[in-house]
Amino acid sequence: MGVRDVIFYDFPDNRFDTVPLLDIVKSIEKVIRELKPEIIFTHYEKDLNINHQITYKAVLTATRPQPGNPVKKIDSCEVLSSTEWNYPLGFQPDTYFILSTEHIRKKVEALSCYESELRTYPHPRSVEGVEYLARLRGLQIGVEYAEGFKLVREIL
Rank of each mutant, 00 (worst) to 15 (best):
G138D: 02
F91T: 09
M1H: 11
P65M: 09
L151Y: 02
G148F: 01
F41L: 15
I141D: 07
H52I: 04
E102R: 12
V71L: 04
I28V: 08
L139C: 11
N49R: 08
F11K: 01
Y56M: 02
S27Q: 04
F91N: 02
N69H: 01
C113D: 10
Y56W: 03
K72Y: 02
Y9H: 10
G142D: 00
D13G: 12
I39P: 00
P20D: 14
V71I: 08
T55R: 05
R33W: 10
E109Y: 03
D10K: 12
S82D: 15
F11R: 03
E38V: 00
E154G: 07
P93T: 03
R105Y: 11
P12Q: 12
K36N: 11
I50G: 08
T95N: 13
L35S: 07
K57I: 05
Y9Q: 05
V19G: 09
N49G: 09
Y87R: 06
T83G: 05
E144L: 09
E38F: 07
S116D: 12
M1Y: 13
E147W: 04
V108K: 11
L89Q: 14
L118Q: 11
S112L: 13
Y132Q: 13
R15T: 13
D10E: 15
K26L: 14
N14I: 15
F16Q: 06
Q53H: 00
T83E: 02
R125Q: 14
D17E: 15
L111V: 10
L156T: 14
Y145W: 01
K73E: 13
V71N: 05
D75N: 15
P70T: 13
I74T: 00
T95H: 12
L80V: 13
N49A: 12
S112T: 13
E144Q: 12
I40P: 04
P12V: 14
G142A: 04
E78S: 05
G138E: 06
D10F: 08
V79D: 10
I39M: 08
M1S: 14
C77Q: 06
Y114H: 10
E45G: 10
